[in-house]
Design a protein around this nucleic acid. Structure first.
Lengths: 218, 218
DNA sequence: TGACAAATTCTTGTATACAAAAAGTTGACT
DNA sequence: AGTCAACTTTTTGTATACAAGAATTTGTCA
């Protein structure tokens, strides 16, 4: 948006938080970080403000900036919200989707299937993202689309590890097919329900993971 | 969040934008505004960043900050998104709402009715807001709640003028009653549908207003 | 020895100074 | 006279300097 400096710093910091360099609760010392990036405190503070608005860091007055990773409850809530927002996008898309977009969805699905056959997880992930983003876009509502993309991005690091569940990729593919079918029929509620449960599975998987971890910890 | 200075400036600027002191497209000169608030450019810039993130101003690199009011299309999209998000909140709330919250909804409704009888528009508005916020909260999903509140706030200045439609307040009241009834029955889809159309009406009223304005302009 | 208080130090928040880029203006050349 | 270019001015982006508040440390007293 504004200058490329604060923006690129925000991106880099985001990356450093995602990859675990700055774990949850870390205090982000303005001086140390600004030195690390070779800039002064001013643009760094602007970057921190942005991260604060997107929820990645918490700014406590007169205390500083702290890395704020969502806890398990918050994550479940975000997964649930994602499922509901996708359902809404699907509902609207069913009424508005274009023929070309339907074709694109099928292309993405074919590429997904190819990735499944090739056991190519990265490629699967990319094509899967494309699939969902087309649906956001075809909701015909750019506000919703923006919200969906934002949340999708925020959940990215937590979703990635879940694709490892055995047989999940193949099942996911089948769900994609059904979703496209519902969209092409213009079946709003059907598309919404299918998308909701398709995405909600991720939250449930995560829930299972959490409880499993909790059980082993006792 | 951070210091009270930049925060209060952001709030005041928001107010100035809402009340039309700074119309759409106005360039917000950093020096003039900072002088107006009696602060330096630094905290003002932080305030502008926040407003940019919430979508009220657009920050163009090396050009400055410009007031960015949503156009008609964008507004319709936001109203639609609001309707859908409310529907989602209602769906979840139907499964999770507490008895005390149901009581609070009915209290808010009674106060609303009293405001209708007294022709007290301000009071109606306040109680109506309370009604909806209870539902957001009872979705049991604080992420969704936050998004709903944010959008609700953003649409506030555009919704206010619509309550003048004849008979709208009374009709709205009846819809509220039906919504509470659905929630108390735990009828998820019914609550969702009722909430969606209850809110969507606002968007439609706005749409009518727009087309009417357009027609007179020709 | 432990606890409380004062002082020092460190860090954040704000102001100002400086640099770079864009916009506006003036002048020269065709 | 019109257009293009260089220069001036204005404005944003960044750095640094300064002020105020929080945290820590040290010293004193019980």
């Amino acid at each position: 948006m504004k200058q490329r400096r604060a923006d690129s710093i925000a991106e880099q910091l985001e990356e450093l938080i995602f990859d675990g360099t700055f774990p949850d609760g870390t205090r982000l010392d303005e001086i140390r970080i600004s030195e690390r990036f070779g800039v002064s405190r001013t643009p760094l503070r602007e970057a921190l403000q942005r991260l604060a608005l997107s929820g990645l860091v918490e700014l406590i007055p007169r205390r500083g900036a702290f890395v704020r990773q969502p806890g398990p409850i918050e994550l479940l809530e975000m997964f649930e919200a994602m499922a509901e927002i996708e359902a809404v996008c699907g509902r609207l898309a069913a009424m508005r989707i274009t023929e070309t977009a339907l074709d694109e969805l099928q292309t993405a699905n074919r590429n997904c299937q190819a990735a499944v056959n090739a056991q190519d997880r990265d490629s699967y992930y990319t094509e899967n993202e494309r699939f969902h983003k087309i649906i956001y876009q075809q909701s015909g509502n750019s506000y919703l689309e923006e919200q969906a993309i934002k949340l999708h991005k925020r959940l990215k690091p937590f979703r990635r590890q879940q694709l490892r569940a055995r047989g999940r990729m193949a099942q996911s593919m089948a769900e994609h097919e059904a979703i496209v079918e519902a969209l092409s029929r213009g079946a709003a509620d059907d598309a919404a329900n299918r998308l909701r449960s398709h995405v909600a599975v991720q939250g449930e998987k995560f829930h299972n993971l959490m409880t499993a971890l909790k059980a082993t910890a006792e």
